[in-house]
Amino acid sequence: MHKQLALILLAAATALAPADAAPRRGQAAVDVDPQNRGPVSGTGIEMRDIIGMSDRIVRDLLQRADIVGTAVPPRIILEGSRIRNQSSQRIDTDLFSDQLRAQLIRAAAGKLRFLSRETISDVAAERELKREGQTDVGTRGMTRAVAGSDYRLIGRITSQDARNNSTGMTQRSTQVVFELVDMETTETVYISEPFVVVRAQRDDIVYR
C-alpha cells in the first residue's frame, strides 16, 4: 500500500511538473536568402516562388527568336492590374509584375521594350506642357503619339483549398500562368509553363 502511494505521488509530481523551458531569448533580425525557404512559411505563394517563376519565364521568353530576336524590339505592357488574383490568398500582384519587368528588362538588354500605361496620365500632362510651350521639348525630341504596344503580358493566379477534418491537415494548391497576348490579333503567342505550388500544414488541435 505504501509503495502504491509512493508511485501515485511520483506520477502526480511528474504530471504537475512544469513544461521544459521555452526558448527565452529573442531573435535578432537575420538576412534570409529570398530564393530559399525562410524561417516562417505558410501554404501560399511566397517570394521565392515569385522569383523562381519570373526566372523561368525570362529564360523561356529569351529563347523565343520570334519574339525577342526581331530587328525591331517588340513593345510589351506588363502591369500588376492585369495579373488577376482569383486565388484564396490575399496578395499584392505588383510583386509579380515588378519582379518580371525588372528581370526581363535586365536580361533582355534592349531586345524587349516595356511601356508604362500606369503613368500615361503623367505622360499626357507633360506632352501637353511641351506642346503649349510652357516647357521646352526636353533633350530627346517629341513624337507624334505615345508608343503603341505589340504585346501585353497577363497572368492569372488560381487556387484550390482542401482540408481533412479528421486530421486537421489543410492543403492549398496554387497555380500561376502567364500569357503574352498579341495586341493586334488577340493571339496568345506565348504561355508560361503552369507554375504549381502545393503546400500542406496542420494547426495545433486547440485551434481546430
Binding site: A15, L16, A19, A22, G42, R90, Q201, R202, D203, D204, I205, V206, Y207
Partner: peptide
C-alpha cells in the same frame, strides 16, 4: 489579425499548455 489567424501553431508552448489537464484552455 489575419496574419496571426493564418499562423500555424505547430510547436507552440502555450497551445500545448492549453491541452494540459492542469491548465485552462484560455492559456492559448
Amino acid at each position: 489579425a489575419l496574419l496571426r489567424i493564418e499562423s500555424v501553431y505547430a510547436k507552440d508552448r502555450l497551445a500545448s499548455r492549453a491541452r494540459d489537464t492542469f491548465a485552462k484552455e484560455a492559456n492559448k
